[in-house]
């Protein structure tokens, strides 16, 4: 097999067979430290991609009434409310926001902080959804992104449990799998994806992945200098379990707080080992049956 299943990989498009001269790998850097939770990205995405409405529910958990990424939600703004022991460091956020906390009950300087993060398909370097797709419907684009071809997908649903982030879903009534395309139809024309275009704070940044990584490193350094110790990059590292994400994040807490897995691994990393074990087990069946029938009777 020509493709590498895990580990760092400079150019997934080339690995997928695109000749030299293909466009650079494009992606998203979502800087959650400047996300204001406006959900313009969710709306822009739905509008541009004609993603169907999927229920207007009040989930009763927070200001997030979208809940999760799915076949019908390709951008999802998570909203986390946390009690903190001191007011958050001023990182240039608008001052209108969390309600003022009274000091009488909760002691000195106790407060609340809000974490908001616009989640999206990670366009993994090693994408399990693409690996396991039996029809070739999921494919790697020349931009290094991962896209479902809706005229090929037969709705087998294998990509759904394969995704380590729980991103891709099967659409009810339609039967096929759907997810973020990184606006394949826009970026080919030199436009930005709809979500990045709509984002009012540049929390969602689109561009060549190399540039985004440099920009993210500088932003992380800046935040650490300002004393925001909890800031960290998620999905930036090409050495991680999926070979790094095409869409990565700057987070202000542990990934699982935002509903992200702390150490995702592409399942196909272990596939060679699995096929070997299956071959041994199959050989045991053959040997067992042969022994049973050829033995003395």
């Amino acid at each position: 097999m020509g493709n590498r299943l895990s580990g760092p990989l400079d150019d997934p498009a080339q690995d997928a067979g695109y000749p030299g001269g293909h466009p650079p790998r494009m992606g998203f850097f979502t800087d959650t430290s400047v996300c204001i939770g406006c959900k313009a990205c969710e709306v822009a995405c739905k509008e541009w991609n004609s993603v169907p409405e999927d229920g207007i529910d009040l989930l009763g958990l927070s200001y997030d009434n979208t809940g999760e990424l799915s076949a019908n939600t390709w951008r999802h703004v998570a909203f986390v409310e946390q009690k903190v022991s001191a007011p958050a460091v001023d990182i240039g956020m608008p001052t209108i926001g969390a309600p003022k906390q009274t000091d009488d009950q909760s002691g000195d300087r106790d407060g609340v902080r809000w974490l908001m993060s616009s989640d999206v398909c990670k366009h993994c370097t090693h994408a399990a959804c693409l690996d396991v797709c039996p029809t070739g419907s999921l494919f790697r684009t020349e931009f290094g992104t991962v896209v479902v071809q809706d005229d090929i997908c037969n709705g087998c649903g294998y990509c759904v449990p394969a995704c380590p982030y729980g991103v891709i879903g099967k659409r009810e009534g339609d039967g096929r799998a759907w997810k973020c395309t990184l606006c394949y139809d826009r970026i080919g024309d030199g436009l930005q994806p709809a979500c990045a275009t709509a984002c009012p704070t540049e929390s969602i940044q689109y561009g060549p992945l190399d540039e985004l990584r440099e920009r993210a490193d500088r932003r992380l350094e800046e935040l650490h200098e300002k004393g925001v110790e909890q800031a960290r990059l998620y999905g930036r590292d090409p050495d991680d379990g999926v070979g790094g994400d095409g869409a990565f994040f700057l987070l202000l807490d542990e990934p699982e707080v935002y509903g992200l897995p702390p150490d995702p691994v592409v399942t196909t990393r272990d596939l060679p080992a699995m096929w070997k074990r299956a071959a041994v087990a199959a050989a045991s069946v053959a040997a067992g049956v042969a022994w049973a029938f050829l033995g003395r009777s």
């Binding site: 097999m1 493709n3 299943l5 690996d131 396991v132 797709c133 039996p134 029809t135 070739g136 419907s137 090929i152 997908c153 037969n154 709705g155 087998c156 649903g157 294998y158 099967k170 659409r171 339609d174 039967g175 096929r176 799998a177 196909t268 596939l271 699995m274 096929w275």
Partner: peptide, 26 residues
């Protein structure tokens, strides 16, 4: 019967992918 688009069952056989146990399985 499990497929979302059963009429497209034969798409299972349009490629052979060792990275997809469902392709190998088909």
């Amino acid at each position: 019967h499990d497929l979302g688009r059963p009429e497209r069952f034969l798409n299972m056989l349009r490629v052979f992918k060792v990275t997809s146990p469902l392709s190998v399985g088909s």
